[in-house]
């Protein structure tokens, strides 16, 4: 061979990539699913949830941040990695208050969808039961901080897309939390608007539009119809 092909293998399957792409981006383009949560294809990779951890040439790392390279051998769908991802989800579930039956995002929630896909049956660890007051000060949008998974998608979107800088993370360790850029710390005292893209990027039910509750009934929602894995395969098909 005169040139090295821009391909790597994912669980033995050959995946094409464009130079500059990450392993996760290339896999998703090919319709191959690597579980992930904090990644949003329209934003810079965050790399905090660690669900997309894969083994690349024997070393573990986040598929969302590692650049695809010719000839890489990537392992993702192994019982060991899936077991760790399940454990990671369980840790995320007990950290917050993820009460799906009472959450408007249920059925459209990525955290829940990934947990379904990995067949997580319970949160396993003792719950932390956080006490973070809800912010309902904004006329059109509410924030339940107890559901926040600290992925910073709203932070990035508001800053880089909406140009408003409404959100940020503050605190350290388990005291890390989302904060709002206004003297009162309330969303209602910012120029945040429902038309902001940041109002619609939350992968879980932390940032929700008001007055549209249950417009679509539970059982007929995005991930009720298809699993997240099936959807990604279908999206790639449609994109071709």
């Amino acid at each position: 061979m005169s040139e090295i092909a821009n391909t790597f293998t994912l669980d033995g399957q050959i995946v094409q990539f464009t130079p500059g792409q990450t392993i996760l981006e290339a896999a998703l383009d090919a319709g191959l699913y690597i579980p992930h949560l904090c990644f949003n294809p329209e934003l810079k990779p965050h790399g905090s949830c660690k669900l997309c951890t894969v083994i690349v040439n024997g070393r573990s790392g986040s598929a969302c941040t590692i650049k695809a390279m010719p000839g890489q051998e990537v392992q993702s769908s192994t019982p060991e990695l899936d077991g760790r991802r399940r454990l990671q989800l369980q840790m995320i579930f007990v950290e917050g208050n993820h009460f799906c039956p009472g959450c408007e995002k249920s059925g459209n929630c990525k955290l829940q969808a990934v947990a379904y896909d990995l067949e997580m049956l319970n949160p396993h660890f003792p719950h932390f039961f956080p006490e973070r007051p809800i912010d309902a000060s904004h006329p059109d949008v509410m924030i339940d901080f107890n559901r926040c998974i600290l992925c910073e998608q709203c932070v990035q979107t508001s800053r880089d897309v909406d140009g408003k800088n409404i959100f940020a993370l503050a605190g350290r360790g388990m005291k890390s939390h989302l904060v709002i850029n206004s003297p009162s710390g309330k969303l209602g005292d910012t120029d945040f608007a429902l038309t902001d893209k940041a109002a619609h990027v939350c992968p879980v039910g932390a940032i929700l539009e008001k007055r549209v509750g249950y417009a679509k009934p539970i059982g007929e929602r995005k991930y009720d119809e298809q699993t997240i894995r099936e959807q990604i395969a279908a999206d790639a098909e449609g994109g071709l």
Binding site: S48, F125, F128, L150, G173, M174
Partner: peptide
Amino acid sequence: FAHESCGFCSPCRIGTSLVKD
């Protein structure tokens, strides 16, 4: 470690607290 975890990634943020508890 529970006190010093920066809180960025979920394995360390939650893991160090669970271990401490």
